[in-house]
Design a protein around this nucleic acid. Structure first.
Length: 277
DNA sequence: CGATCTACCTGATGGC
DNA sequence: TGCCATCAGGTAGATC
């Protein structure tokens, strides 16, 4: 569910609300959510700690702790972070509850239990979070100029859809935003990265910056099942700006061609065969 | 190295 | 109504 724009929206919400707050108690009821370490490690690593800067790398949320360690959260497909008063009943599938000294609770809710919460030592990142350690440059924070994108695209020769969603190549894009970026750049998802010329890379860069900036401004995309909401339960609005995602059979807003859908490696890909080449 | 499956889960939706 | 198949924003690991 959540991709870079949604995770960034949650990050900004956390930065505005929990920085400087002390953790008074922690409850873990979902063993799968803390599988990277253990319930004891999460409870012990958080209780009594004060929360510091809130960062993001790709789709990972990283909160500094005054112990020198960090709280790592990945929402995966269906995870949500919710801020609530203690007297508000727990939503179904609430797996971790972090009580803060301001009287509020930070709750991790996740029906499919793919998401995770861990407290890790940044000095031992390679051992404790090899997935995080091997992330490529962040699609928004690190890929600022064309040269940065060229450095990702040029050394590889892969279908663009696979390249853009490979978190080790470029971190943060998922199924929705990769399709939207490729449509804006007028590049087909099956196009090989090795075949891009300088103007293709410039268009891809401009599309990447534009789509992500607009999606973050819109506080992300929330689809019909309302799986993605921010800390206060509010959805984003970028779904209204989707040009291809979920629109197979409709007409392309740019050229009028009927949009297509294909299932590659078990994932849906949407594109316009008329203006993406 | 790159492409494609499967597995991990629950829930929503649509067809019959 | 119920039953079944299909699909879902992610990722790791195995296989070809």
């Amino acid at each position: 569910m959540p991709e870079l724009a949604e995770v960034e929206t949650v990050r900004r919400g956390l930065a505005a609300t929990v920085v400087g707050r002390r953790v008074t108690s922690v409850g873990v009821t979902g063993a799968r959510t803390v599988r990277r370490t253990s319930a004891q490690a999460v409870v012990g690593g958080l209780t009594g700690r004060t929360l510091g800067a809130v960062g993001r790398r790709g789709k990972y949320l990283l909160l500094q702790l005054d112990s020198g360690r960090m709280l790592m959260i990945h929402l995966r497909m269906s995870g949500q972070l919710v801020l609530a008063a203690p007297d508000v009943p727990l939503a179904k599938h609430t797996h971790v509850v972090v009580a803060l000294d301001a009287g509020q609770e930070l709750r991790f809710v996740d029906p499919r239990t793919f998401g995770e919460v861990a407290v890790i030592d940044p000095a031992r990142l390679t051992e404790e979070a090899p997935d995080l350690a091997s992330l490529g440059p962040d699609a928004f924070d690190d890929v600022r100029d064309v040269a940065a994108l060229r450095a990702i695209v040029q050394p590889r020769d892969r279908m663009l859809k696979y390249l853009l969603t490979d978190q080790r190549a470029i971190a943060g894009l998922g199924n929705i935003y990769s399709d939207e970026v490729l449509h804006r750049a007028r590049l087909a998802p099956s196009r090989r990265s090795g075949s891009l010329d300088a103007s293709d890379v410039r268009r891809l860069h401009r599309a990447l910056r534009g789509v992500l900036a607009e999606a973050i401004d819109a506080r992300g995309s929330s689809l019909g099942d309302a799986q993605y909401v921010d800390l206060w339960g509010e959805g984003g609005s970028y779904q209204a700006a989707h040009r291809v995602y979920g629109r197979a059979g409709q007409q392309c807003g740019r050229c009028g061609t009927t949009l297509e859908r294909a299932a590659w490696a078990g994932r849906s890909t949407f594109w316009c065969p008329g203006c993406q080449a």
